[in-house]
């Protein structure tokens, strides 16, 4: 082998080693923060619960079985775990509702901001982010204060004679939905704004010029062009909604549980860590499946329009 080829090979070798070395910190963080904990959860979900929480190192699939099935105490037969199923369904339903509602409120908001003059846009964005300055728990209690039976909303409606008795909103699914919409709205507005800000509004003019009504301009031009923002915003709202803990706890009153509360229950009062771990993994799987469907759907409609 010639001298130069040898040198080149050595240089390449060095280069590869250097690259591994340079990316080591990033890889370490990814492992410690993401893959490592996930592995711990996977392992725990196949163990036996200890009497005071924690786990006993004995292999068991009981946790996974009880995620979906429950043993009838009297007959000893296995049936579908209705309680869990209901919580799954409620979580998915409320998260979908929250995503759609934040999109409905967030889209006009983002459009409004994106069509302001450059200087005022920054001000509006600033206003949108103000709620982030307050602790989530305090914001959730504030929502409770508004919607409870003796709260501002009911008092005002009764006072105005619109309703005769307070409406029970608190501790219902509606309360959870209102709370989540309020908390996650900025997460929808910001990515929507980011893609609308890049939108060339001359295309909107071109649409009007070519006989499109305002509605058609919205559906045929603006929505397809800001789709990346819609996808990003929906993902950012849907995922934390599924695992929401504080909002359903405070506004659902512990009666209307969501997945996050169920998981917390297993690690706390339930003292069934393996079941908690199995439920947490189930949540992860639901999120992944939902994302896969969503991304594929978005790509498909992209192709249909393109």
């Amino acid at each position: 082998m010639s001298q130069t080829a040898e040198t080149a090979r050595k240089a390449e070798h060095d280069d590869v080693r250097k690259r591994w070395l340079l990316s080591a910190p990033a890889l370490a963080i990814i492992f410690m923060a993401s893959i490592g904990p996930l592995l711990v959860v996977v392992v725990y979900s196949f163990l036996t619960p200890g009497p005071y929480g924690d786990v006993k190192w004995a292999f068991s699939t009981d946790a996974w079985i009880s995620v979906f099935l429950q043993r009838d105490i009297f007959e000893g037969t296995l049936g579908i775990a209705d309680a869990h199923l209901q919580i799954f369904l409620r979580s998915v339903r409320l998260s979908l509702f929250t995503t759609i509602a934040t999109l409905a409120f967030g889209f006009p908001t983002a459009y409004f901001i994106a069509t302001r003059p450059q200087r005022t846009q920054a001000l509006w964005l600033f206003v949108i982010t103000i709620p982030f300055w307050t602790n989530l728990l305090i914001r959730t209690f504030a929502v409770q204060e508004v919607i409870r039976n003796e709260g501002i909303l009911n008092t005002a409606l009764v006072g105005l004679g619109i309703i005769s008795a307070p409406i029970q909103i608190l501790y219902t699914d509606w309360a959870i939905a209102i709370g989540m919409i309020y908390v996650y709205l900025p997460l929808m507005v910001l990515p929507l704004y980011a893609s609308m800000e890049k939108l060339d509004f001359r295309l909107v003019e071109a649409g009007y010029d070519l006989y499109a009504t305002r509605f058609r301009v919205l559906t045929r031009i603006i929505v397809p062009l800001v789709k990346p923002g819609i996808v990003a915003g929906s993902i950012l709202v849907f995922i934390p909604s599924l695992g929401a803990y504080v909002t359903p706890r405070v506004l659902g009153g512990g009666k209307q549980m969501m997945l996050g509360n169920l998981i917390e229950l297993q690690f706390g009062a339930g003292r069934n860590w393996p079941l908690g771990a199995a439920l947490a993994l189930t949540l992860t799987v639901i999120v992944m499946v939902a994302l896969l469907f969503y991304v594929r759907y978005a790509a498909q409609s992209e192709r249909r329009h393109g």
């Binding site: 060339d200 001359r202 295309l203 003019e205 071109a206 649409g207 010029d209 070519l210 031009i221 397809p224 062009l225 992209e302 329009h305 393109g306």
Partner: peptide, 13 residues
């Protein structure tokens, strides 16, 4: 109808 200076062709079509 208008032919725009920037053409304003719809990039998604």
């Amino acid at each position: 109808n208008t032919v725009f200076q920037s053409y304003a062709l719809f990039p998604h079509l």
